[in-house]
Every structure is written in C-alpha cells, then in structure tokens.
C-alpha cells in the first residue's frame, strides 16, 4: 500500500452554492448548488458539454466563477487531480518514469531520479499496474495506459481530496478494474472523491452520491434515489449510456 506518514485521511466536505460560470457570453453553469459529503465518492454525470469539466475547474479555482465554493477540510489539505488529457508532442522522448520524476522533484528529470522518490514512484506505478512500463515513452502509451499514469500521479502525495475528470474514457477493461480497486481502497480510507463519469453501471455500484449537471443541477442524491430510468433519460435525452 502507499505509505503515508500522517493520520489516515479524512477527506473534506464541499459545498457548492449558486455557482455560475459565464465565458464569452455563453452561460456554462448556472445556479449550481449541491453538497459533497466528507469521505464520499461523489460522481458527476451529465451529457457532453454540459459543464462537468467546467465545474471541476471551478472547484480547482481555475475559472472566474460566480457564487461560492467552500471546502471544509478535516484532515490534510492535499488535492489530487486526474485530468482527462495531457497535451504534448507524441514524439518527445519522455518516459513514464521521467514524467513521474518531474511530478515529484525539483532536480531536472534528465539528471536523475532522487533515491527517496524512486520507491514512491515505483509504488504508485505498481498500484496502477504500470511499473513494468516505466521506460515506455509517454507518446507510445495507449489512452488507457495514459490514464493510469495520470492516476498514479494524483496519488503522490497521498490525496485527501481526489478529483477525476473522466478517467474512464478510452480505458480498457483491465485498466478500468485496476482503477476501480484503488478507488475502493481510497474509499475505505475516507478520501473524498469527485468523479465525472459516463459509466452509469460503475456509478450505481460504487458512488455514494451522484449529481447530474447540464448547465444546472438536474438531480442530486444517492444513486438508489435518483438513478431511475426516467431521470436518466431526462438527463441524457435519447442518448443514454445506461446499463
């Protein structure tokens, strides 16, 4: 398991109050209000372009949002972020190990990886089953492998709040299982997770709470309560990706 020197993490609770976002005269988010309970795995679902990613970026403080987003930290205050993509030249000779090294240390990755980070990086990569592919170039990774590496990165340092933007997109079955297992472990450790997702089956199985975003909050609650078929159809229109 990942080693951590502090107390077991208690993730924060998050409060969204009348959050809005308007860019280039287009309203992306409007009156978004809901709560993420501490230690919960909270999924965000909704159609593409509905504002899920924008909401995540607002939570990260990187958009000029209106309204109020409050994070009530209980344990530590580390945020781990798993983005959807990395934008880079695929022919660049940067290996997975190089990438993880750059994440961890100040010393340039082309010199060497410091000893104290070598184990940490190895552990994280092993958790996502990428430790054997450490010397692969980032550009050679499949979409799923890339996602797993990005996941590993978010675990260093061990997060109290884990934010994932569509980590399931393009991932293979095996990889998805790996990530699921880790997230269950994180759940047990009471890490708060905010997770945008398209796989409703996964949401139903794993999430403690789910919120549907399509510019506004369409519905929010526990999966049992709100993930009824009509609601799903209502949210996604004719294009349902249900079970």
């Amino acid at each position: 398991m990942l080693t951590k020197n502090e107390d077991p993490p208690h993730g924060p609770s998050i409060c969204f109050e009348m959050v809005g976002l308007c860019l280039n005269n287009i309203t992306i988010l409007q009156d978004v209000s809901f709560t993420v309970k501490a230690g919960n795995m909270h999924c965000l679902i909704g159609p593409n372009g509905g504002g899920k990613t924008s909401l995540i970026l607002s939570l990260l403080g990187q958009t000029p949002h209106t309204g109020r987003i409050t994070i009530n930290w209980i344990g530590g205050t580390t945020i781990g972020y798993v983005p959807q993509v990395l934008d880079f030249d695929r022919t660049l000779p940067i290996t997975v190990n190089n990438f993880m090294t750059m994440i961890c240390q100040n010393m340039p990755a082309f010199i060497r990886t410091r000893k104290k980070y070598k184990d940490i990086i190895n552990n994280a990569l092993r958790l996502v089953s990428m430790d054997t592919k450490g010397e692969r170039r980032l550009g050679e990774l499949s979409g799923g492998e890339m996602q797993r590496v990005l996941f590993a990165q978010a675990l260093i340092p061990f997060p109290d709040l884990l934010i994932l933007d569509e980590p399931g997109a393009g991932i293979d079955r095996g990889g998805a299982k790996v990530i699921e297992e880790i997230m269950l472990v994180l759940k047990k450790q009471k890490v708060t997770m905010v997770w945008t997702n398209h796989d409703l089956k996964q949401v139903r199985q794993m999430a403690d709470a789910v919120t549907c975003i399509h510019k506004e909050v369409l519905f929010s609650g526990t999966p049992d309560e709100v993930l009824t078929t009509e609601r799903v159809f209502q949210a996604f229109g004719a294009t349902s990706s249900g079970p």
Binding site: G61, T63, I69, N72, W73
Partner: peptide
Amino acid sequence: MHTQVVKPAGS
C-alpha cells in the same frame, strides 16, 4: 480543520 473558500480565477 479549516474552511477554504475557493477563489475564482481572473483576479
């Protein structure tokens, strides 16, 4: 244990 209000970007 403390509360943080997320500051919007652009400032």
